Deep mutational scan, measured.
Amino acid sequence: EPLWIRPDAPSRCTWQLGRPASESPHHHTAPAKSPKILPDILKKIGDTPMVRINKIGKKFGLKCELLAKCEFFNAGGSVKDRISLRMIEDAERDGTLKPGDTIIEPTSGNTGIGLALAAAVRGYRCIIVMPEKMSSEKVDVLRALGAEIVRTPTNARFDSPESHVGVAWRLKNEIPNSHILDQYRNASNPLAHYDTTADEILQQCDGKLDMLVASVGTGGTITGIARKLKEKCPGCRIIGVDPEGSILAEPEELNQTEQTTYEVEGIGYDFIPTVLDRTVVDKWFKSNDEEAFTFARMLIAQEGLLCGGSAGSTVAVAVKAAQELQEGQRCVVILPDSVRNYMTKFLSDRWMLQKGFLKEEDLTEKKPWWWHLRVQELGLSAPLTVLPTITCGHTIEILREKGFDQAPVVDEAGVILGMVTLGNMLSSLLAGKVQPSDQVGKVIYKQFKQIRLTDTLGRLSHILEMDHFALVVHEQIQYHSTGKSSQRQMVFGVVTAIDLLNFVAAQERDQK
């Protein structure tokens, strides 16, 4: 057995438009009618409502009807409940999964919650491996369901041993009777949507819809739904939504950006999952974080739909894509998950301010006199920076000697690579993860907040409520011999709460 199987392995699926269902090699399930009293909570997966979006479509000038398939009504709160249950049931049916076995899954959280929910009911041990950027709410729900959680670096490539995929496979090879159901490759993922989600949409719309818009992560949702719609409703256009920084969209030119990270969760990847059939997507749109969270908040405030950030991405694209539809036509959007997962993220004004998705003037509360002053007023001194090749031991000596707790790590040209902190280095040394002679590049981390000289002290204040420091950066445009230009970030300084307090105190003292 291989040590790991690539999540982007070539698909062996034989589905073709027009091929009889009787030739399918898979076990198919028909939607079942729910009894009045459910035998367990797993029976509350599927049969989610279709809700008309009344205000947002009109606000953006849509002539067509805009409908939302509300997947956050599933038992675990997301569309991923469907595939989690289906993968477990299919693994039980073919004898792969037996009582007492362990389920391991690399996930952005929602599939993990679905699997942990099913594992709690069915009696399996469950280990979820997820990147650090995923919300604390997801972690809390997983723990409450009895799952064990392993976190991995957000910026690790999918084929790196440190990625959530790599760590999951390492655990599988170490733990007896453990299984990775593997949402990236498992046919049960798109089949769950082909058999149930798509049929529900067709039934709820009486077979009449002209466009379907869905955000894409593993691709199982859009693949399964689109294949069924292509068979039953061939005139329906399928629109895929991919965040900026991901590479799922086609044509490839759409993916060209210097951005590699994004805040919206559960969609987009740096590889093409095996289950994603991009041939059934008629057109791709890219979405960005700001519009995703703005539209998610709009869905909550104006439509009462308590959905997550990827739902915002989907609707932001839908109001663009559906401009081509006329009166009497219908566009369906998939709202994948609930706001429950993001209470401390985009639902929080403070978080939105820190990330730059909300401006101070958007909030009406009274601010102190210094709130709208610029960061450049602080008069920061030149920063202490270190090269990635310097040793951890030497870096600790320098920081202690100069009285700093942290320093930016830059390359020879001064471009920011990340940050090192005294606390992080000492804990890594004590844990045996690094040696004093190791290069400081081994303990770089990139989960820090950046701020510009033109940003306000109010925004800085919000950042420092949650973080010990902020890195002050400025952009530099560099022209190359080819005539092309590129933008790079340079370090201007490091600012802490002490710097802000000293500035405010000094100004008030001078005024007296």
Rank of each mutant, 00 (worst) to 15 (best):
I239R: 05
P243S: 06
E244Y: 10
E244G: 15
E244N: 11
G245F: 02
I247C: 02
E252G: 08
E253L: 08
Q256T: 08
T257G: 09
T257A: 10
E258S: 09
T261A: 02
T261D: 05
T261H: 15
Y262K: 10
V264Q: 07
V264I: 11
E265Y: 02
E265S: 02
I267R: 02
G268Y: 05
Y269G: 02
I272F: 02
T274V: 04
V275W: 04
L276T: 12
R278C: 02
T279I: 10
T279M: 11
D282Y: 15
W284M: 02
K286C: 04
K286I: 02
K286F: 02
S287N: 07
N288T: 05
D289I: 02
E290L: 15
A292L: 02
A292T: 15
F293C: 06
A296S: 07
Q302Y: 07
Q302E: 07
L305G: 02
L306R: 04
G308A: 06
G309W: 02
A311R: 02
A311Y: 15
S313G: 08
A316D: 09
V317A: 02
A318C: 10
A318F: 02
A318E: 07
Q323L: 13
E324Y: 15
L325A: 02
Q326F: 08
Q329Y: 09
Q329W: 05
R330C: 13
V333T: 14
V333W: 02
V333I: 14
L335E: 02
V339D: 02
R340L: 06
R340W: 05
M343S: 02
K345R: 07
F346T: 04
F346M: 07
L347F: 02
S348A: 10
M352D: 05
M352E: 02
G356V: 04
F357G: 04
F357E: 02
E360R: 10
L363G: 10
E365C: 11
K366C: 13
K367G: 12
K367Y: 09
P368Q: 05
W369M: 15
W371L: 08
L373I: 11
L373E: 13
R374L: 15
V375P: 06
Q376R: 14
E377M: 15
A382T: 15
P383N: 02
L384F: 09
L387N: 09
L387C: 09
I390K: 05
I390G: 13
T391G: 05
T391Y: 02
C392T: 12
G393H: 15
I396A: 02
I396Y: 09
E397Y: 05
E397I: 08
I398C: 02
I398F: 12
R400F: 08
E401P: 15
E401G: 11
G403F: 08
F404H: 06
F404K: 06
Q406D: 02
P408A: 10
V409S: 05
V410W: 08
D411T: 13
E412V: 11
A413V: 12
G414P: 02
G414T: 12
G414L: 09
V415R: 07
V415K: 02
L417P: 11
V420G: 13
T421I: 12
G423Y: 02
G423E: 11
L426H: 13
L426T: 15
S428H: 02
S428C: 14
S428I: 14
G432L: 10
Q435H: 13
Q435G: 15
Q435V: 11
S437K: 15
D438W: 15
Q439F: 13
K442S: 08
Y445S: 09
K446F: 11
F448G: 15
I451C: 02
I451W: 02
L453H: 02
T454G: 08
D455W: 09
L457V: 10
L457D: 02
S461F: 12
H462I: 14
I463Q: 14
L464I: 12
E465G: 13
D467K: 02
D467C: 07
H468M: 15
H468V: 06
H468R: 11
H468I: 14
H468N: 13
L471C: 15
E475S: 02
Q476I: 12
I477K: 02
Q478Y: 15
Q478K: 14
Y479T: 14
Y479K: 15
H480M: 08
H480K: 09
S481I: 10
S481K: 15
T482Y: 10
T482D: 07
G483R: 13
K484V: 13
K484Y: 12
S485P: 12
S486L: 14
S486G: 10
R488T: 10
M490V: 14
M490F: 12
G493H: 07
G493F: 14
V495K: 02
A497E: 02
L500D: 02
L501S: 02
F503N: 02
E508C: 11
R509S: 09
Q511L: 10
